[in-house]
Structure formats: C-alpha cells, structure tokens
C-alpha cells in the first residue's frame, strides 16, 4: 500500500474543500442574489465573485481555512485501518504548505502555534464503522467566526418543541452578523449535552436544500428558515432577506429530565468535500 499516494489524496480533498464550494451552496447563494436588493445584493455579489475567483485560481476562498475536521466512514474490511489516522494527519501537514492553509492550531495554555494545523486532538476526526471495505472521508474545514456562535441549550422538557424553535430563532438573532450570514444552521435535539452539539455539526454535512426525511421535522426546518430570515439580519448582518441558507435538524432520544439543543453554525462558506479510498488504495476526490 502506497500511503504517500493517499496523503496526496488528503491534500487534494482539503484543496477541493477550501477552494471549490459545493454546487448546492452556490445554487442557494444565487437564489439569494435574485431576491436581495441594495447593500444585501452587494454582499452576495462579492461572495459569488469570490467563489468564482477562488475556484479559478485554486486559492482558499476564505483566509480562515478553519480547523481541519473529518468525518470518516470506515469499512471494517478496509485492510489499512491502523495507518489511516497517521495518513490523514500527514496529509493535513502537507496541505498546510501546498494549498496553503493558514496555521490555525494554537495551544490554549502557551499560545504556541504548531504552524502545521495539527496539535492535540486536531485534526478533529470522527470515526464511524460501517460494513464493506471502502473508506469515505468527508472534509468539513470549520471556521472560527461561525464556530464562536455555537450554542448549547439545556432546556426544560416542559417547553416542548415550541421552546426548541424559539431558542434556535433567538440565538440566531443574537448571533446577528457575526457568523458571516447567510449561514447554514445545524440543530441537534436530544441525546445529552455533547451528543446534541455533535448532531448539530453532523447536520451540516447534509446538502443545502435537502429536507429531513421525517416530514414533521422537515416542516420544522422550513418554519425555522422562514422565522430566522424574517428577522431582517441579512447578509453580513447589514440587513436583508437572507440570514440563513438552510436549517438542518438531527435528533436523538433524550433523558426524560433533559431537552438538550445543540446549535452548530456554518458561515456561507459551507465547505465540504468527499474522498473515497478502496481496499487497494485507489482514491477519488469529489
């Protein structure tokens, strides 16, 4: 197995995520451009021009290239499980020089910057075991400005789903222009404190415009989009009709005494890319 070659694949995965926004996001931004006027339109215009330029010049669309975050679905029959973590970490180091990425990993105590986007527990990798022999890696580089607007609410179960909706809408109004709207909002409901936030982040993996398969939840997503967008916060918080491009909800069963709500916020640069590796080490980035 040629791990150096898979490292190259990781670099290409990161490059793709940082320089080439998924079509579902571009489509939603173009729709926003159509309906916005005045200052709001100038913001979406700059965003669309920026996306175009980044793709053409293969440059990161945003200077905040994020904390490198990966979700890995790993087939239990993939023969090189033991090497994969090291390969991803080496790929991140390489990508820092080659894409390039901003050195974004700082020790919380000493302030020391590793300068290669790695550090303790970073890159942040979530492993999910599946059947089969393929590996699917999803890169979701996560910017700091939007991450700072994350919220955890340990609500009282008595407030019900109406209380959950109000919490999400209020928090997104409080966040205002800070997370670089129009944003994509991931909401995790239930589980415990950590699981609700994790579900919120996982919800960001869903393409923009795709509704939850449960019709009741899909309706709530639509209601939240409408309510947040009627706040008037708009692109970059300068006023307008588009504050969110989408809201995605995921759920887990909860403890009878708890109603956790985890909100993960993603800026308009909803950067995602995928890579498949088969058992022979052949990879493809898409």
């Amino acid at each position: 197995m040629n791990f150096k070659d898979i490292e190259k694949g990781i670099v290409e995965l990161i490059r793709k995520a940082e320089t080439d926004l998924p079509n579902d996001v571009i489509k939603a931004l173009k729709k926003a451009y159509e309906i916005e006027k005045g200052v709001a339109k100038t913001q979406i215009d700059a965003i669309l021009k920026n996306i175009d330029l980044a793709k053409k010049t293969k440059r990161p669309m945003c200077q905040d290239t994020g904390i490198q975050t990966f979700f890995v679905d790993i087939g239990i029959d993939f023969p090189y499980i033991s090497e994969l973590k090291k390969t991803i970490i080496n790929g991140v180091k390489k990508a820092t020089k080659e894409v390039p990425l901003r050195p974004n990993t700082v020790d919380p105590f000493t302030g020391e910057n590793h300068k290669d986007n790695t550090g303790e527990n970073i890159p942040y990798i979530t492993w999910n075991l599946c059947n089969g022999s393929d590996v699917l890696i999803t890169a979701l580089p996560k910017g700091g400005g939007s991450e700072n607007m994350s919220k955890l609410g340990m609500l009282k179960p008595g407030v019900g789903i109406e209380g959950v909706k109000d919490f999400v809408v209020e928090e997104m109004i409080k966040a205002a222009g800070n997370p670089c709207p129009p944003t994509v909002v991931g909401v995790g409901i239930g589980g415990g404190a950590d699981l609700s936030l994790k579900l919120g982040k996982k919800a960001l993996l869903r393409p923009v415009g795709k509704r939850h398969k449960d019709k009741t939840i899909a309706k709530i997503e639509e209601e939240l989009i409408k309510r947040i967008n009627s706040s008037g916060i708009g692109p970059m918080g300068l006023g307008g009709k588009t504050t969110v491009l989408d809201v995605h909800i995921e759920k887990a069963h909860r403890h009878p005494a708890s109603l956790p709500v985890g909100i993960a916020v993603q800026c308009w640069a909803d950067r995602r890319a995928h890579m498949v590796i088969n058992k022979n080490g052949k990879w493809e980035v898409k």
């Binding site: 100038t42 913001q43 700059a46 965003i47 021009k49 920026n50 330029l53 980044a54 010049t57 440059r59 990161p60 669309m61 945003c62 200077q63 905040d64 910017g143 400005g145 222009g177 670089c180 692109p235 970059m236 918080g237 300068l238 800026c267 308009w268 640069a269």
Partner: peptide, 13 residues
C-alpha cells in the same frame, strides 16, 4: 466599514 466576510480571495486581489 464592513467588508464581505469570507471573501478572502477577492480581497487579496
């Protein structure tokens, strides 16, 4: 003044 957040490539130009 506000410059469009995230429009980093455009600004660099």
């Amino acid at each position: 003044t506000s410059y469009t957040g995230g429009a980093g490539a455009l600004a660099a130009d």
